[in-house]
Simulated assay, not measured.
Amino acid sequence: MTESLKAAETVTSRSEQGDRFHDESFREGFEEGRLRAARRILIRILELTPGGISVQHRRRIEASTDRQELDDWLGAIFRIRNWSAPARE
């Protein structure tokens, strides 16, 4: 194999590795953004409830890394609370 072919294969291999790293990093960043948004939304909804949010619940939500857990908490809030839409004029 000639030196130029070896060099081309090395560049291609590095490029593929870079693409995989970029894709993985993007997915991880995207998921972290979704987790932050889910935490923020859940905390905001709890802040707006009559009882507010306890310090323990806020800490637990802020520490959660499980989006399904956050979604489950949100579903529980909507099942427990008697939600009614605000009156529109």
Rank of each mutant, 00 (worst) to 15 (best):
G33H: 07
T12S: 15
D72Y: 08
Q68M: 12
F21R: 10
S54I: 02
H22E: 08
R40Q: 11
R58I: 01
T65M: 13
P86L: 11
R59W: 03
E89A: 03
R67I: 15
I77K: 07
R20Q: 10
I41Q: 13
E62K: 06
L48H: 10
S15C: 07
R88S: 12
E16Q: 14
G29P: 02
L70T: 07
A8W: 00
V11F: 06
E9L: 03
A7W: 00
E24A: 13
I80Y: 12
V11S: 12
G18P: 01
R58T: 09
F78T: 07
R39D: 01
A37S: 10
A37I: 09
E9S: 03
E32K: 15
D23E: 07
S4V: 00
F26N: 06
R59D: 09
R44W: 03
T12H: 13
D71S: 11
R88E: 09
G29W: 05
E32H: 13
I41S: 11
R34A: 09
R27K: 08
S4W: 00
D23K: 12
F21E: 13
G29F: 06
M1R: 00
A38D: 04
K6I: 00
N82P: 02
L70S: 06
D66C: 06
F78A: 12
G75V: 03
R67E: 15
T12A: 14
I80P: 01
D72T: 13
E89Q: 07
A63H: 09
A37M: 08
H57K: 12
W83M: 11
P86C: 06
R44D: 15
G29S: 10
Q17C: 02
L42K: 04
R79E: 13
P86Y: 08
E47A: 01
G29L: 04
E69K: 10
L70P: 06
E28C: 02
T2L: 01
T12L: 15
G52H: 09
R60Q: 10
S15P: 00
E69F: 05
T49D: 09
R20T: 06
V11I: 15
L46Q: 14
A76K: 11
E89G: 09
I80G: 11
A63F: 01
F21P: 00
